[in-house]
Design a protein around this nucleic acid. Structure first.
Lengths: 139, 139
DNA sequence: AACACTTTGCAACTTTGTTGCAAAATAAAC
DNA sequence: GTTTATTTTGCAACAAAGTTGCAAAGTGTT
């Protein structure tokens, strides 16, 4: 296990440190989106706030995790499926936020349709966020 | 003009004040999504930060504007088209935020492609926000 | 083990958003 | 057009979230 996580870090040209290992492990075990505060709590405040910020930033840059927009102005981080290891493949799926329960869903299998932007515009990121009622709240 | 805006406020049971009038006017003239910071700047810091927060909150509650979540942890506010009073039909065009100059463009002529959601989900709103470099900054 | 390089934790700071309350503005009543 | 009741505003103080510089500690390489 540990070795596997170390592998992922090395594959992304990151040195293997306690914080990176723990946080990545946390993502893999929880298998759901985490907020910065969640990580702080679940690592028992073992790491400095700043360290967590920087670790998350690094992971985003390397494509290990991606950010999820939420309605209440908080950022969630989630593991990128294919570990994005070959890189360049930014997440491309639709997110759905339930107005009632507030849960953010990754609709992994629904990809964002291509959108043609006007000439001269360069797109670096595309977010498609839907909101309404999820299946559980609609019952 | 002023009368028209006052009408909208009254229709929503809101008293007509300077800040509400100015901010609503700003939304109508800019016709694009605005962040809190944009509003602060464009009203030349005429109003207290707190007032702007509360005004936006009120507008959201009344359905005059709606929020657009973005992945970078910023919330955008946009006018609801039909004033949403009779409801339900929200804007349907793509937004583009320039990372360099910070301007938000409404790509009015590009509509959001239809997205099929899983069974049981009810979509009330769909926002597509792109970011990158606009034509002016890419020159 | 010794070196170069990267990462961490601390402190200080900025930015963003919230709350309570007195003063001012608005709306309603006369 | 005053007066009164209600709402809204601005201030101050606070809370939460995020950033930056830098010395100390950790990592990787030889």
């Amino acid at each position: 296990m540990k070795t596997e996580i170390a592998e992922i870090l090395k594959r992304n040209q990151l040195s293997v440190t306690d914080s990176r290992t723990s946080i990545l492990e946390l993502f893999r075990s929880s298998k759901s989106a985490l907020a910065h505060a969640d990580i702080e709590k679940k690592t028992s405040e073992q790491f400095d706030r700043v360290t967590i910020y920087r670790t998350l930033q690094t992971f985003v840059e390397k494509g290990i995790v991606h950010t999820i927009p939420t309605a209440d102005n908080s950022v969630l981080y989630a593991l990128c499926k294919d570990n994005c290891s070959q890189g360049h493949h930014h997440d491309n799926h639709v997110h759905f936020i339930c107005d009632d329960c507030g849960v953010t869903y990754c609709l992994e299998h629904i990809s964002i349709p291509n959108v043609q932007v006007p000439e001269g515009f360069i797109t670096k990121q595309t977010d498609l966020v839907m909101s309404g009622q999820c299946d559980k709240c609609n019952a």
